[in-house]
Structures are given as C-alpha cells and as structure tokens.
Write a protein that binds this DNA or RNA. Structure first.
Lengths: 337, 337
DNA sequence: ACGGGTCGTCGAAGCGCTTCGACGACCGCG
DNA sequence: CGCGGTCGTCGAAGCGCTTCGACGACCCGT
C-alpha cells in the first residue's frame, strides 16, 4: 500500500512534517543538490514512500524554470510512413522517461504557431522535430526562439542545430557492396519518385550518390531511376528499367511503396528472385522481413534514442555535434545471392 | 513582428504595466471570469499581442490547479494495429487543441505506475486509455485515483467510467445484412485469432454475436471460425473453412492481417471475387480501399474526437454516459455483390 | 437627493516548489 | 584552548499566475 490511495495532493510540506525536517531539506534530498546526512536522507526517503509523494509538476516547473517535458512534433498528417513514426515515438517516450522527462505530442500541422505557443508558455524544455523539410519554416524559428531542438533528418542549413539521421549515402554504398560481393556487375537503383529528387530531398540524393560512388569504386555498372508511387506505376517503371537495361542482375529499391509491387512484378517480367535478379531494399524492416527481403532497415528506435539523448545534452548546455549519422546495417535474407 | 523574437519570458505583469492596469485585470480579460469594460479589454488585448504574451504553463497550472494537459496512454508496444493508432492520436491531438489542451504521450508499458506518477504530480487533468483489456489493472486504479479518464474499448466492468467504442455487434450485423440482401444464404465469419476469443476480448465476441444474431434473424446460415495471423496461417484457415463449408458464398473477415492474404488466396482456392464469393471486412479503411474491398471501417478519427469530447465534459464535471457506441457504416466496394 | 445595487478594477494572498544566504555544530590545527 | 572551515540544516524569498474580497463609481428608483 502506498499510504493513501486517492485524495488530496501530498505536498513537500507534508513530507517534511512527517520526516521532521524542513521542506528545503526534502527538496535537497530529492534533487541531490546539497549534501545531506545519510540518516536524514533515509528518514526523508522513507516519508516520501510512506506518503506516496510526487512533486507537483507545475510548482516544480515554475520554481526551477524547467518543465521536464519535451515536445515531439510529428507529421501526423495522415498518409505518412506510419509504422516507422510509431516505433520512433515509442523509442522517444521510453528514452525520455529514462531521463525523467515526459513527452508532449504536437502535430506538425500546428506549424510554427505551435512552436511559438509551446516556447512562450514554457510548457516544454526542448523540441524534437520530425519530418523536417529542406527549407523548413520552423527551423529559423527554432533558432530565433532559442528553443533547444533536435531534428530528425536534416534541412539545407543545419548550422547551429542538431540533426540525427540514417547515413543514407553509406546505406546506398552498402547495398552496392553487397550486390557486388555476390558477383553482380550490373546494378540498378529504383529510387524515390522524381518529385522527391526535384525537391532536393536529402535522403534520396544521398542514397543515389552512395550507390554511384560505390559502383565506381568497385568497378560495376550502376544505373539509377526514379520510381513513382502506386502498384501500377511501379510495374511500369520497373518494366521500363529492365527494358532499357535487360542485363541488370542487382536491384536496389528505395521506395517503401514499391517494395511489394516490385517483388510481385519481377516474376511476371521473367525474372526469378534471386536466381535471375537479386533485390535489396532500403525500407522499414517490417516491410522486408515477411517477404524475406534483404534490406537496410531504417533504425527508427535508434534514431529516437539518439535524438532524445542529444536533446538532453543540449538541455544541459553541453555541446552536441551538428549532424549525427547513424551507421546503416544490411540484413541479408532470401532475395539476394 | 510579434514584438520580441526570443529572449526572456513575458509575464502578466509586463502586460499589465504596458496596458496600465492591474495584473489581475489582465487575468480576468484572458479568462473571461469577470466582466471587464470593452475599452480596458481592448487595451489589454492589444498589449498582449504587442508583447507576444503567452501565460506560463507552470504558473497557471499551479495557481488554477489544472494543467490543461491530458494524457494519451497508447499501446506502443510494437506490433499493434499501427495505422489506426496513428490516426486516432492525430484526432485526439487536434480535438484537444480545440479545447485548449495539450496531449502528453504515455506508453502503456509504464503501466499503473505511470498513472500514479502522472496523477500524483498533477501533470495532467485527465487520461485517455487505449487498448483497454477486459480486466485491466489500470481501470480500478483510475477509479481509486479519482483521475478523470475515458477508455477506448471497454473493460468487463465499466461502472463509473466512460468508454467509447465502435459498436462491433452492430458492425457484425451490418455485414450479414449486406450479404443477405445481396442474396447470400451461407455466410462465414473469419475472425480474430483464437487466443483473442479465449482472452475474452470484447470486440471479437461482440462481432461474432452480431453476426450470429443477424443471421438468425434473417434466416441465413452463418459459421464462424477464428483465424491465426500470418499469410500462411490465413491461407490454411481459409482453406479449412472452405473445405468444411464449400457452399459458403459470403465471407466476413475481421482480422487486419488476414485481409490481404484472403483476397490473394481465394482465387487460388478456385473462388473468384465477387462472382463466386463476396467478401466484407471489418478493418481500417486504408487497408480496404486500395483493394476495392467492401468494409466496415474502424472510425479512428471519430473515436478520438468523441473520446476527447467526453473527457472534456468530465473535466467540467458534467455527467457523461458510461458507454458510447459509435454507429458503424458499411462502405460498398467491388468485393461484394 | 439618498440608499442600495451593479459594474469594473485593484491589491493581496496564496498554489507547491527551488534556491539562496545564514547559521549552529563540529572538526582539526596551531 | 581558540579559531577558521566544512557540513548539514533551516527559513524566507520568490517563480508567474489565479482568485477572493474590497472598494470606488456610477445608475436606478423613490
């Protein structure tokens, strides 16, 4: 039994009285900001437990000027890469709790105004920004508000910020290295939709660069080609690719929505997997695993953990690297050989 | 320009000084809890805007004893019906903002302890509990803590609580009614995994009851059968079902992970859709829509909205119904006729 | 013209916590 | 044996806000 079930809030004064000390002493025991004798500390902690004391968040925030809450700004506009976001959110919450922080959920569609509100009201100590665009209006705002923030992905100008992302260039290289090691000499990248490249989105360009670089280094041919979304479009783009380059035997796919259709369409195009064509994808592992697809997973949990860790460091005013790239790993399954 | 970009917090005293009134007057203007002359109000609001004032959340929470934050307890343990959860969360955040509340994200794996912490620290005013089990340890705790809460789904004993859920019984009826109206006389329900029924999970039982009841009422045959997860298992269970009941022409599927495999497997089992067999699913619309599947969608947004609305009502100490069932609607597409 | 209501505003008292300065008690050193 | 220096604890002063009671000013009816 934790003393009292429900009822009125237990205050620090209650604990102090129960332990026979001053309220400030209780505070110091709990924060460890001053030395307290072992006996007193023991008595206080016992009282805390006996009364089921939890410090009042509002009062604490007011007095200490820190909320112990961070905001997670998610691209909740429907139609995103949902499972990844979810796993990411889980990791963020879990990690934040480990640092004794809670997580406030904010939707991206509140936009810059949301950041203003949150910063102005001191609701949170810092912000995790997902789904950052190359020229994101919230990024300069973050700088201006002096609101500690960590970005997932990275914008064009990342000076003075902290960004976490998968090292997509390395991911591209990894795929090519794997295929080359398996003996493939003609490789193709079936990439993101053309619009994504045109927008100059970082991850797509970096992956392509990695593929091309690795191919050059290893002396294999590599062609790259955008790929539109939707089963029909994927089939069309894949067919076109194979028509132009019929001798391709290694395929890198970086387009979540293309994974399924590609695997379905290859046999129809006369290519058995992996006998005729090896397929490697850069996509969430959930998507790859059930199909036995060799892939470089997007490590959502790891990104979440890293992001929180960086933010905590910033909150302590410790220096953090501007860009943190996560090392990709390739999981070999049945579609490559 | 909103006055000052970054820098120190603007307090209510700053606004009061700027407007030439007392701080309490500013407070009353903002809360509307006392009548204030139009001229004064105008002056105050102008100052608020000029200075870019946002009330300090901690101070406000401390003084008013309400945090203006609600907790959303999500089943973030990986492997849930992810897209639904996501849309639900979006709706919750958006609706909560409309009531001037923010949303704290809590993972279910913090369990009862998390509720204790949150309640004890007055971090939130109320709780939205998702993924409620029939005998959920958090439910009695909610009662004991006198923490206003709204449940998504409903537990065995819902007295004194507020629950929101899709009316699954009605959903089951709806599916049967639709199939019967199309002339089908032998109908099968391919349901949740057996374990789900064994756990006594409400929605599965209620759906089955609805199917059986409607079939009885309409004088059609209905068989029901659990269905395990995973493409292979689904194929097996479906094949078994059709072997035992080869004359089934109407199929109700209530198992997200089964939808794709069922549609893929039916042709292989010699059944064309919808010529030989009509298929109706109870599943997220995203899943059904791309396949042209007739379905009763799970209205995640609507549930989220309702849940927040109910919670807000509870926070205002207004009476709320113990159980709120959402009327299911059936969307006719290509797989039934 | 005067008492009784509003109406609009103000000042002060907290809400529960952190933090700063103060201050005994006790230590070891010369 | 007395003096400076920790060490451990306390009291008080806010943090920025809401809210309560008070109190002029004004309007009404008579």
């Amino acid at each position: 039994m934790t003393g009292r079930g429900s009822g009125e809030q237990v205050t620090i004064a209650d604990v102090a009285r129960h332990a026979g000390v001053a309220a400030s002493t209780v505070s110091y025991v709990l924060s460890g900001k001053r030395t307290i004798s072992a006996t007193t500390r023991g008595r206080v902690l016992a009282s805390v437990r006996a009364l089921g004391y939890h410090p009042n968040a509002g009062a604490r925030a007011l007095a200490s000027r820190k909320a112990n809450v961070i905001a997670l700004v998610l691209p909740l506009r429907t139609g995103m890469q949902v499972p990844v976001v979810m796993r990411f959110a889980t990791a963020v919450v879990t990690t934040a709790r480990r640092y004794d922080h809670d997580v406030l959920l904010v939707t991206a569609d509140e936009g810059p105004a949301g950041l203003h509100r949150i910063a102005g009201s001191a609701l949170v100590d810092g912000v995790l920004l997902m789904d950052v665009e190359l020229e994101d209006s919230r990024v300069p705002l973050l700088r201006e508000l002096a609101l500690p923030g960590v970005l997932i992905g990275h914008p064009a100008d990342s000076t003075g910020l902290a960004c976490v992302d998968l090292d997509f260039r390395r991911a591209g290289e990894l795929c090519v290295e794997h295929l080359a090691a398996a003996g493939h000499r003609r490789i193709a990248l079936l990439g993101a939709p053309a619009a994504v490249y045109d927008r100059g989105t970082g991850f797509a360009h970096r992956t392509r660069a990695g593929v091309v670089a690795a191919a050059g280094r290893l002396g294999v041919d590599a062609v790259t080609r955008p790929c539109e979304e939707g089963p029909a479009a994927v089939r069309r783009d894949l067919a076109a690719l194979l028509a132009e380059h019929p001798d391709v035997t290694g395929l890198v796919v970086q387009n979540e929505s293309a994974v399924g259709p590609v695997l379905a369409a290859l046999p129809l195009l006369g290519r058995r997997v992996p006998q005729d064509v090896s397929v490697v994808a850069i996509c969430p592992d959930e998507l790859a695993e059930p199909s036995g697809l060799t892939c470089v997973p997007v490590p959502a949990e790891e990104v979440g953990r890293q992001a929180v860790t960086l933010l905590m460091r910033r909150l302590r005013d410790e220096p953090v690297p501007e860009v943190t790239l996560l090392e990709p790993r390739l999981t070999v399954r049945d579609t490559s050989g």
